[in-house]
Design a protein around this nucleic acid. Structure first.
Length: 320
DNA sequence: GAAGCATCCCGCCACG
DNA sequence: CACGTGGCGGGATGCT
């Protein structure tokens, strides 16, 4: 039986801990002896109070010897909770020591900062909450931050984006250990809407955040969403009052995508909403989302979601 | 599916 | 000299 050690601290985000724990626990029930045993731990042990005020018991992390078959999940939380944890040398030392021994090290949300501080993300691809990606990249330049992924697996180190994506990552781990069929059945057991692959983007969240009107790029993003038909790299540059070259740079820095991708994602984003909530025909829908024609829309969907608009609608349309 | 055309991307470099 | 900017070129990608 594999062991899952969930490392927490005071003020940890409840869902960071609960989401992955629930998946591994469900897999444990399903698989029996070959499954997982979940243990919660923190420095010093005892009661841990979460962001949502729920308290839970933890073992003393320092008393737990990391072993070959273990998966360590380092949870995250809001800044005021993570900062003290970042300064906790005992915690960082434990993480560092565990990294060489266990089967895999993982983080949820801002837990990635703890992995990075312990040095185990150096030279690896990783992700964290969209709000923290830029900061993670600045604080730890040796980490290759992917601001778009929901979760990233680089060798035996897995990192996941936001709170709820810990669930997606845990399902990905179960899949790696036991196959897709088991992972799918657990997703069904937990009544998850869809099981999302790691490469699916946290882009819409980033878009919403960047629509901050004090930021020139934010205004441009807002403009794209209002003018899907006219949007192109050139018109966007004009709108943002930037040269094409600089627009390109700003987009990469602040959103992690190129301008053309930004526009395409905004189009797919809007199309998804329409597909799921309306019966508008493909031709008209493609037109009003700025794809021009259904063929281009299909191509964009295949690129971003790995499925055709038609399939997306079948999967997501609700009987109103 | 192929071919020609348009757009985009990004290293490079001159400029302020 | 360091730094941000933006034009250029041509290879890559996407569209018709």
């Amino acid at each position: 039986m594999r062991r899952v050690l969930i490392a927490a601290f005071q003020g940890v985000a409840l869902l960071d801990v609960a989401g992955s724990a629930e998946v591994f626990a469900a897999a444990g029930h399903r698989l029996g002896r070959k499954g997982y045993r979940v243990q919660f731990a923190s420095i010093g042990g005892g009661a841990c109070t979460t962001s949502a005020t729920l308290r839970f018991e933890t073992k003393d992390l320092l008393a737990l010897r990391p072993r070959a078959g273990d998966t360590v999940v380092v949870a995250g939380g809001a800044e005021d909770a993570v900062l003290p944890a970042l300064g906790d040398q005992a915690l960082l030392a434990w993480i560092r020591g565990a990294a060489g021994r266990v089967e895999r090290m993982t983080s949820v949300c801002s837990g990635a900062f703890l992995l990075a501080a312990a040095g185990i993300l150096d030279g690896r691809r990783a992700t964290t909450h969209w709000r923290g990606c830029e900061r993670l990249a600045k604080m730890y330049p040796r980490v290759q931050v992917d601001p778009n992924a929901i979760f990233v697996a680089d060798g035996d180190v897995w990192t996941s984006a936001g709170v709820a994506t810990g669930i997606d990552m845990a399902l990905g781990i179960v899949e790696a250990d036991h196959g897709a069929a088991i992972a799918d059945s657990i997703a069904a057991e937990l009544v998850l809407y869809v099981r999302r692959p790691g490469f699916q983007s946290q882009f819409s969240e980033a878009l919403v955040c960047q629509a901050d009107h004090s930021n020139p790029l934010g205004r441009a993003v807002a403009w794209v969403r209002q003018n899907l038909r006219e949007a192109s790299v050139e018109t966007l540059a004009k709108e943002a009052a930037l040269s094409v070259r600089t627009l390109h740079r700003r987009c990469r820095e602040q959103l992690g995508v190129t301008p053309a991708t930004l526009i395409e994602r905004a189009r797919v984003e809007h199309a998804r909403t329409l597909l799921a909530t309306s019966a508008i025909a493909a031709k008209a829908l493609a037109e009003q989302c700025g794809f021009g024609n259904p063929t281009n829309m299909k191509r964009a969907f295949e690129r971003q979601l790995g499925m055709a608009p038609r399939d997306y609608r079948l999967l997501h349309a609700r009987a109103a």
